[in-house]
Design a binder for these strands. Sequence first.
DNA 1: GCGATTTGGGAAAAGGTTTTCTCAAAAGGA
DNA 2: TCCTTTTGAGAAAACCTTTTCCCAAATCGC
Lengths: 347, 347
Amino acid sequence: MSSDASPAPAKTPVTLREVAASAGVSVATASKALNGQGRMTAETRERIRETAQRLGFRPNSLAQSLLRRRSFTVGLLTNDTYGRFSLPLMSGVSDALVDAGVSVFLCNVEDDTRLAQLHVEAMLDKRVDGIIATGKRIDRHLPVDLANLRIPVIYAFTQPDPGAIAFVSDDEGGARLAVEHLWRLGRKRIAHVSGPASFAVVHARAEAHRDVLTEHGLPVSEPLLGAWSEAWGHEAVAKLFGGGREGAPDAVFCGNDQIARGVIDALRERGIGVPDDVGVIGFDNWEIVAEATRPPLTSVDMNLSVLGREAGLALLSLVGGKPAEPGIRKLPCRLVVRQSCGRPPGG
Amino acid sequence: MSSDASPAPAKTPVTLREVAASAGVSVATASKALNGQGRMTAETRERIRETAQRLGFRPNSLAQSLLRRRSFTVGLLTNDTYGRFSLPLMSGVSDALVDAGVSVFLCNVEDDTRLAQLHVEAMLDKRVDGIIATGKRIDRHLPVDLANLRIPVIYAFTQPDPGAIAFVSDDEGGARLAVEHLWRLGRKRIAHVSGPASFAVVHARAEAHRDVLTEHGLPVSEPLLGAWSEAWGHEAVAKLFGGGREGAPDAVFCGNDQIARGVIDALRERGIGVPDDVGVIGFDNWEIVAEATRPPLTSVDMNLSVLGREAGLALLSLVGGKPAEPGIRKLPCRLVVRQSCGRPPGG
DNA sequence: GCGATTTGGGAAAAGGTTTTCTCAAAAGGA
DNA sequence: TCCTTTTGAGAAAACCTTTTCCCAAATCGC
């Protein structure tokens, strides 16, 4: 288990003082040698460096943070228990920060104000350099007020406070991508089946759907709003195709991948071919669902890990003292084409 | 946005020194007053407390940590990008720790040794009190050696180093739960469809399946090993039911919920009723899948959040200096009964 | 060879808290 | 009244690192 090359693990971490003593210099000189500061003989510097190396010295971050008033940690607040949205986002955040040596405190606060408050205070006590707030819904606040903190806050995929900086996905753009893709494939009657009307994104996407249809002179139909579930996909198919095939859609743009999954399964059960008779597009690009549908589902990806990355970089820049314009930045979605829409007539 | 009751947010955090000055005492006295230490008049103590309250004093965790050699943070290392297993686990860990005022650094290390090393070093530099290692597979090591760290390490749902403390789910027990449930419902020919043979849990569960069948005098069949996917569930049904209904199973115990989903869909397509003709049980109790299958899937839940909780508490106790027996602790699974197995003959 | 500058390196303060030690004043005992 | 004990509170060290002075020795110019 242990290799000969590795230094024996010390019971207690080695301090700069010990390095200095071992190299026969003062701690001040040792510090400067290791940080490339100050003036000294190249030989002295090298000797100190070697000593530090040999002893396995690593500076105590706590002491550094105390002095620099910068802890190289940030807090990530989320209320997305299930994590389908937060995980790619977090992974992006972490990605952006790890290279800067910044670690991330993860705080799952559910919808519990007391818990959220507790976590925020713990973060502040631990002197995090900033906070990224994220959630499962773009149109809801986290259960805690982050407006007047004395550290920078970035909102990602959650409702920001006024005057704050936020990154969200461009749902209108994503929906346009989907509907225009169907249009380019020659689909004429493009239905839209989505989640509950209480979600802001439902309206944003429905509006984009209607706009694209209008722009291309296609017949506009009312979106069917229900739930974010497979079961609703089944129901919606019953409504759309219950009256027979004539007048029924030749494409369905769904509000998420679970609905799309339900729609595709229901169509198959009715003997309607996907993509031959009807093209289907989902939203979220939840790979494990999209790839398991038959045929694999074309879907809109919100690029959440990019979004997280951008949020992380923005926070870093804020922490570094660079001012930034408040406001909401919408990041583009991308279409992931699989097999549920078919090839274009020419292709 | 701001209420009158809240103190004006200070540009810079208020220190103990300022509290002491404002209360007209020394920092030493102030510290003791706030921590309930030392001796002083009740009146002095109260005055200092009120001053601290009024000024919104919160002790600087960094300074405390430096002195106490205890940072009240732990690192959570995981390589489960997708997070289906780590999230409930993390939620349990966080749960156990938040009450002790301990925050969690989340480090997603994928399978990247360099990245893992980087994160571990960052943790150590930040003087975490301990590390919880977790992953997506019980039978694989994380891509980093945690054996000789000078801080406690607890393994949860991942392969531990020898001599370490680990918490894992009792897969044999979980499988027994499933197969015995089917047996109690009067099922006689219970097949087993599971994931790739390269997974240790596949063998553990298959063995339990065989044992239970033997114990009850039921015919033993070879498990069908494939992939963790719906597609494999479909394939397996073709193999099991391709020769017609005679001799075919009247129950299928699946290695995970996705396989079970595939099995149930495939059975329905063949006109075989679930649960009337065939009972199906899954594993993992991935609610979003289990509840979307038709009928909703009975499944074995590994109690991962409990597992995380136990791991958190164990780490806490270790950090507190209490010694603990090394070894692997298997935590029981539980069966979540939905509708895919039917009611017992008598019920 | 003498004053001015550069060079190499150290002392000390700072960051914010906790804890041990110390000490004066007050109280108690005789 | 004098000595001992208790009480209330402060000084200072400690945790570990960084940075700002500061100083002695060496170098330079002439």
